[in-house]
Amino acid sequence: MGIIKVRNATFSYGRENVFENIDLEINAGEVFCLFGPNGCGKSTLILCMLGVLPLSNGQISLGGRNVRGMKPSEVAKVAAYIPQSHEKPFPYKAIDIVLMGRTAHTATFSPPSPADRKIADEALEKVGIAEFRDRPYTQLSGGETQLVLVARALAQQTPILIMDEPTAHLDFRNELNFLETIVKLVKQSGLTIIMATHFPNHAFYFEGIGVNSSLALMNNRNIAVKGNPFEVLTEENMENVFNIKSKIISYTWKDETLRQIVPLETS
């Protein structure tokens, strides 16, 4: 079942270990939230999963293959990446950016084929931003840009999407809109989603809306607890792992019992 398996993974810059001895298994078709404070090593772990950074020790397998032995184009056919922040180097049109999702499918000396262009258009459509197609993406808002990047990831046609704090720069409404888009995609096409986040309620949101989801708490270079959100996001765990006193509250909406975690004080 494990579409991504992380075994005994350690990564270090120089002598400093960013994380060490991490074991994880992410199942196909689930939304996996990697929760932890800023600077705990989430982004680094994600880049290691994508083969962009090499592990110092241990191994990561992606779709059954050791990511270390895969070419960039092979990785990009299995997992797509949505970065935390995207620097806009030139005012490309939205469609140009989405089309770049087809990189792994084109040869060095040839431009994308008409089929590639069709896939890119469909990806825009799927995310619901077809009207932005010919707009310079430098003129789009943060939320819109994030959706363009999701469309680009979809154009890669991979079974896995890996996102690094995708909602970090979004406002209240855009954050919800983004999450709804993700849910829609998972339900439609059975994607596996890995999402680094520092909002624990994202995991409750996915669970509550009926998507297979799991969660790992990361702190002090390691994974402290992992499992489904209901088991992991507890008041005890928040206290033990992050030294936060918190309260889980539950409420009913549209006949579903939903949960939220509310932070109370640091201890």
Binding site: P72, P89, T108, F109, S110
Partner: peptide, 29 residues
């Protein structure tokens, strides 16, 4: 050469990490 790989230049302009995640061998390109 540049004319043929012109589309690759778009991808390169996104920066090393994104370009690599999109499947480009950045060093070679």
């Amino acid at each position: 050469g540049l004319l043929l790989m012109r589309w690759r230049l778009n991808v390169l302009s996104l920066g090393d990490i994104e370009a690599r995640a999109l499947g480009l061998n950045v060093l070679i390109a």
